[in-house]
Amino acid sequence: MSEYTESIREIAKRLLETCSVEMIIGFRKGTVPMMNEPHVIRNARDTGDLVWDSNCGINLANYLTDRKENIGILAKGCDSRNIVTHILENKIKREQLVIIGVPCKGMIDKRKITRMFNGEILEVLEDNGQILIRGNGFDTRLDKADVLQENCALCTHRNPVIYDELAAELVGEQEDIDRYEDVRKLEAMTTEEKWAYFDDLLKECIRCYACKNACPLCYCPTCFVDESKPQWVGKSQDAIDIRTFHFLRAFHCAGRCTDCGACQRACPVGINMRVFTKKLEKDCLDLFDWEAGMSLESRPPLDVYRPDDPDKFIK
């Protein structure tokens, strides 16, 4: 995907030079392997700083909330769906945006790759669907398909759903993907097994809130975990408080989550909190035939009433 970089720089330069936007939100090259940094460019002469490769996993919709400027923003499939949600929820206006669509072939999983090697990884490059990894005592090639982020491997919306410019030709969408194997496995567990599973899942959580802060849906001015009048949840490392935080956060994403993977990617201790949100995502699909952020025309399931609602209590 690194060949996208040139085209992105050109589009960004043109948009800034013609004053179509005041700023471009994209990525600049990271300072450690497999990381890029979200970055803002305000001047056409700086567009050479922009890069695109398989390490642009941060969801850029996060950086749009309540901004007043006219903005050019790079958008992968998931970013674009979250931009749609941002527009629907009045966190940004469509007219402010020039969306530069970036058809996505998936982001690589930094943590998975790190765990594959004993020594430290010093450099990661990509070449035509292959990932070249050089480190202390190894120099190897992997198929990118084998080291994709979990959510990218299961992604069925790689192309942006909304865009004004395109950085490359649209890519083919993955077909015959079973998105919910993990959720079904959990659903099949007994109540006690489920409880134990989540206990183990969350035991490393340090409550840094990287998951909620990396999430483009978590934009409340005061999060319920911070609220003190009344205080909803204790602030210590108590296991019940930690669980309360995670599952309430997931609820707040119901019908809005695009499984962009930002939460899991951000977590410093490697918790896959997507198992909370994916259940809700699956339920929304099963019950309401709903996938978040696919169109500016339809309202999310939690703010409409339909006479054919599948739940019987509502009738």
């Binding site: 996060n62 990287a210 802060n213």
Partner: peptide, 28 residues
């Protein structure tokens, strides 16, 4: 602005840092 633009306001840097010492006091 350049340094802080990408910050998402999580506490990862401070919690993993061996020298950060700030704390909060809570009653329960």
């Amino acid at each position: 602005e350049d340094i802080s633009f990408s910050c998402i306001n999580c506490g990862t840097c401070t919690f993993v840092c061996p020298t950060c010492w700030c704390f909060d006091i809570q009653d329960e």
